[in-house]
């Protein structure tokens, strides 16, 4: 009888141990209660005399932003999220191709190309994106040919196009450095050995060097694409209505800071998690052959 009870006890402890992550939220609840009552109620309110008077009102999202078209703030947020995703994807594609070209320039034996790529990368990396966005949008008019600018202005979303230009130029400098570092981290002897084996230069690149380089380059590229998604919030300054801009419309119009910013935070958080999850899965399954 005693033996059986002990076995049961052991089994229960194993079960508890296995599913202990279920209890973690409860621990957090305890911490939150502690913070709420001890830190907030006793320390802040009674000792320091700071009391928060803020009543939440999430119903504000369903009020109309523009009365004439009955567009609500929810519609505005949806529009914002779609624009953020669109601008990130387009900029990422452009930045990837630009970055690859720059990396090839950097690694090539032609001195002029190397110097050009190096100065481009260094200049772009060491100046703030905000200044760059403003420079491309407001400052490039006298420099570009007139035909091009008139064509560009006739398009329906010029701001979006300029946003893509600024974001992809900024990100391409970072991506180029990552790709260059990835390719350079493969020892030179590998190339020499594969050439000695009878591979041509392109074959050696394709079959030996690049597969290894990709494995090194992928993680930093994931973080760069995450950075790009985050930095895309800055294009609101030239009038693109993306997620950050819609949240600014909300708290500019209704002075509901907490509601606007909390929803925006959750959306950005889930966007980032989704991107990193998807890219990690891609990395895991589709590039697994690169693990020799």
């Amino acid at each position: 009888m005693i033996k059986k009870a002990r076995e049961l006890k052991v089994e229960a402890s194993i079960l508890i141990n296995r599913y202990r992550f279920i209890f973690y939220p409860l621990y957090f609840l305890a911490i939150a209660l502690f913070i709420y009552f001890v830190v907030y109620k006793i320390l802040l309110v009674n000792v320091l005399n700071i009391e928060f008077n803020y009543k939440l009102n999430y119903a504000i999202f369903f009020t109309n932003y523009i009365e004439a078209t009955r567009q609500s703030y929810v519609d505005l947020y949806v529009l914002g999220v779609i624009t953020t995703i669109k601008i990130s994807i387009i900029s990422l594609v452009v930045a990837m191709s630009l970055g690859t070209v720059l990396a090839i320039f950097r690694l090539s034996n032609v001195k002029v190309l190397d110097i050009f790529a190096k100065s481009y990368i260094e200049f772009i990396r060491n100046t703030p994106l905000l200044i760059q966005i403003f420079f491309w949008y407001f400052g490039t008019d006298p420099l570009l040919p007139k035909v091009f600018t008139t064509w560009l202005k006739a398009q329906s979303n010029v701001e979006f196009a300029y946003g893509v230009i600024a974001l992809s130029i900024y990100t391409s400098a970072f991506i180029a450095e990552e790709i260059r570092a990835g390719i350079q981290s493969i020892p030179k002897e590998q190339m020499e050995a594969s050439r000695a084996q009878g591979f041509s230069f392109l074959q050696a690149m394709r079959l030996v060097i690049l597969p290894q380089a990709i494995r090194i380059v992928i993680p930093p590229l994931i973080s760069q694409s995450l950075n790009l998604t985050k930095y895309s919030s800055l294009v609101m300054s030239i009038g693109v209505v993306e997620l950050m801009a819609s949240s600014r419309f909300l708290f500019g119009g209704t002075a509901r800071i907490f509601e606007a910013l909390s929803v925006t935070t959750i959306i950005y958080l889930s966007l980032s998690l989704a991107i990193s999850f998807a890219l990690n899965q891609y990395n895991k399954y589709f590039l697994s052959y690169t693990r020799y």
Binding site: F21, Y24, P25, F28, L29, A32, Y36, K55, L56, S262
Partner: peptide
């Protein structure tokens, strides 16, 4: 997942505590 769950719960408790302030 655990962190996200916990965050939601923390927010929820603060919201519940605050509503009938």
């Amino acid at each position: 997942l655990v962190v996200a769950l916990a965050l939601v719960m923390v927010v929820a408790i603060f919201a519940c505590e605050k509503a009938p302030a």
